[in-house]
Amino acid sequence: MEQAIEKWPGKIYELIIGATKETGGTRSKVVKIGGSNTLPFLFFEGENPNPPAIAMEVWDIEPTDWPDVLKNEYGSVLNDPTQWAKKCETLGADLICFRLKSAEPDGKNASSTEVAKTVKDVLSATSLPMLIIGCGNNEKDSSIIMDVSQAAKGENCLLGMATKENYKTFTAAAQSGGHSLIAETPLDINLEKQLNILITDMGFGSDRLVIHPSTGGLGYGFEYCYTIIERTRLAALSGDKMMSQPIITFVGQETWKTKECRADESEKPEWGPLKQRGILWELTTAAGYIQAGADVIVMNHPAVVKEVKNYIQKLIK
């Protein structure tokens, strides 16, 4: 039987994260994402040159909110971002996703000088390419991102999150430090395109953006987010340059806050052992987003990272 092969006019931009000595940084390797000219894993139809990359989260303060099942995997390194990053390297992470949670105004409210110093420390501790994400407060993130960008200058990191509210500061910061940028929108494909236009209007290369369409946890908007990723990819392959950026999803973050991963066994005996629930939840969510077309998956549980890497290997074989 004749195979019906789809020929797409468009292609996802290929983005390099990290810089080695040859390109002006100190990373031991770079990670390439994107570059596809067809839907995920349809190798018979086109090229998917770069497999999805796994980033593991490292915080600059101890995540007191994490459930024990997850905390126990890391133990004492949770107090020390440099040791934590090193551990993730040994656990097989492709990238470190460093979160500047200490800057939260309602929490430790660390200054830009303080967070910039930890960024430098973590960059020295690990040789993996890095994502650097603010604390999530737009105003505070705008006030620290310039110093953070300068502290990591030359390392070609991926900075986030540029939103409708703060994109001007984030774009200027990424531009001046030579980094790429994550553009985040609240589950709305039209706003997603608009933010990319606004950022590129400032002279920022459309090939240096990564889209975060927001991540829905399994059971908490996963399907909605899945279809947005799918539609984004289809628009890109049809030739829409403002939708042709690689996509990132924050699977760990959306997994470990769900009640399914936290509710005690005495409370929900019918849900089975708590220890396995979170792992299965993160694994299933990650597998789903990989199928949707995510290029970077940010994860938490070491056992799941290992399993997902195996899964990706099987898919690209």
Binding site: I189, L191, A235, M242
Partner: peptide, 15 residues
């Protein structure tokens, strides 16, 4: 034939 966004005229011309 094109995905809507507020700056769709500009988006088309960026092609």
């Amino acid at each position: 034939k094109q995905l809507y966004c507020d700056s769709y005229l500009e988006a088309y011309r960026k092609k």
